[in-house]
Amino acid sequence: MTLRDALAAGTFSVTAELNPPADPVAEPVRRTAAQLKGLVAAANVTDNAAATVKVAPLAAATWMIEEGLEPIMQVTTRDRNIMALQSELLAAWALGVRNILALSGDPLKVGKYADLATKVSDLDSLGLVRLIRQLNDGRLAAGETLGTPTGFYVASAMNPLVDTGEKIEAKIVAGTQFFQSNIVYDVPRFASWFAPLVEGGTVAGIPVLVGVMPPRSSRALEHMHKNIPGVEVDDATFARLAGLTGDEAKEAGVAVAADVITALREVPGVSGVHIMAPGWEAEAVTRVVHATGLEASTI
C-alpha cells in the first residue's frame, strides 16, 4: 500500500526522515532504507538540510526505491531556478518518485555557504506547490505541454503554534494534498491550536502527519525550545531527560516520543506521525515504532 493509499484509507500512518550523507556513497542510505522498510509507510529524503551540502535527494530517493522504501523527496527552492526545479521534478517522476515535500529551504546563514552561495528566489514554497500542480496538469511553466503529465502527491510543511489558518488554507488552495508538521512535544497545546483548523473545515480531507522527535538529551530539548519557532517543550518533558546521558537518555527519549504519539492518536484530525531522529534514524524509529505498536499500520 502506498502512502497516498494509506492516508486515503484513514490508516494512522508513520513516516520518518532519512538524511543523505556528504560522502558520495550509496551504502549508508541503502542500509538505513532497508532497516526502515516495513516500519514506516514512507521516508523523507532531505535536500541539503541546514544549508549543508549532502548527496542530492534524487539519488538517495532512487536508492531507497531500490531497497523497497517509498520516498518523500524534499525539494527546496533555495538552490534552483524555475528551469532546474522542473528538470529535477521531471527526472524524479521518471525515476519512480511519487511524493514531494515542497520547501523554501533553511536560510544559507545557518550553514557554511552564506558567503559562497547565492539564494535563488524564483519561487517560494507556495510557488513550488503551484508549479508541481501545473506539471500534474501536464504543463510546464512557460506553457509547454507534457505528453506524459506527472502525478505527484504533494506535501507542505505545517508549523504548529506559528502558522495561521489563512497561511495553511493558502497552501491547500495552491495544491497541497497533505501536511507534515514541525516537532510537537506539548500535545495539549498543539491540540488547542489544531482544533479550529479541524472544526472549521480548513484541513477537511487533507491528511496531517505530526512531527515527533525522540530527544537524546536535555540539551537537544533546550535547543529546540529556544531556537525553533513553533516547538515548545513542556516542563514535564524536560524533567524526564534531566541529568540523563548516553543509553539512559536514549531510552527516555524513545519513551517521550512514544507517549507523544499515543496522545496524538487521540487528537481529532491527526492522520499519523512523522518521526525525525537525525544521527540515529534507524535505531530511533525502530524503537519508537515497536514501543507504540504501530508496525501493523505501516504494512
Rank of each mutant, 00 (worst) to 15 (best):
Ala60Thr: 14
Asp106Leu: 04
Ala142Phe: 10
Ala242Tyr: 07
Ala242Gln: 14
Lys109Ser: 15
Ala61Phe: 00
Val55His: 01
Arg216Phe: 05
Gly279Glu: 08
Pro268Thr: 10
Ile168Arg: 07
Ser125Arg: 07
Gly151Leu: 05
Ile132Ser: 03
Asp234Gln: 08
Ala114Tyr: 09
Leu90Ser: 11
Tyr113Ala: 12
Pro20Leu: 01
Phe238Met: 11
Leu135Asp: 01
Leu244Met: 07
Gln74Ile: 04
Thr15Pro: 13
Ala252Glu: 05
Ala50Thr: 07
Glu27Ile: 12
Ala43Trp: 02
Glu17Gly: 07
Thr237Ile: 12
Ala43Tyr: 00
Tyr113Ser: 11
Glu144Tyr: 06
His223Gly: 06
Asp23Met: 11
Ile206Thr: 15
Leu221His: 10
Thr286Arg: 14
Phe238Ile: 06
Gly147Ser: 13
His290Val: 09
Val14Trp: 02
Glu266Val: 05
Val173Gln: 13
Met73Arg: 04
Leu128Asn: 08
Asp122Lys: 08
Gly10Arg: 09
Thr52Gln: 12
Leu95Gly: 12
Phe12Asp: 04
Arg189Pro: 00
Arg240Glu: 13
Pro160Trp: 02
Glu27Val: 14
Pro268Asn: 10
Phe152Cys: 05
Pro71Tyr: 04
Asn44Ala: 00
Gln74His: 15
Lys112Asn: 12
Thr2Lys: 09
Val120Ala: 09
Glu283His: 08
Ala141Met: 09
Thr237Tyr: 00
Gln35Cys: 06
His223Met: 10
Leu69Asn: 00
Val25Met: 10
Val75Met: 13
Ala284Ile: 12
Gln74Leu: 11
Arg133Asn: 02
Leu18Tyr: 08
Ile261Gly: 03
Gln74Asn: 14
Gly246His: 10
Gly205Ser: 13
Thr286Met: 09
Gly147Val: 12
Leu209Asp: 03
Arg265Trp: 08
Trp63Asn: 02
Asn136Thr: 13
Lys226Val: 10
Ala242Lys: 15
Val288Ser: 09
Ile65Cys: 07
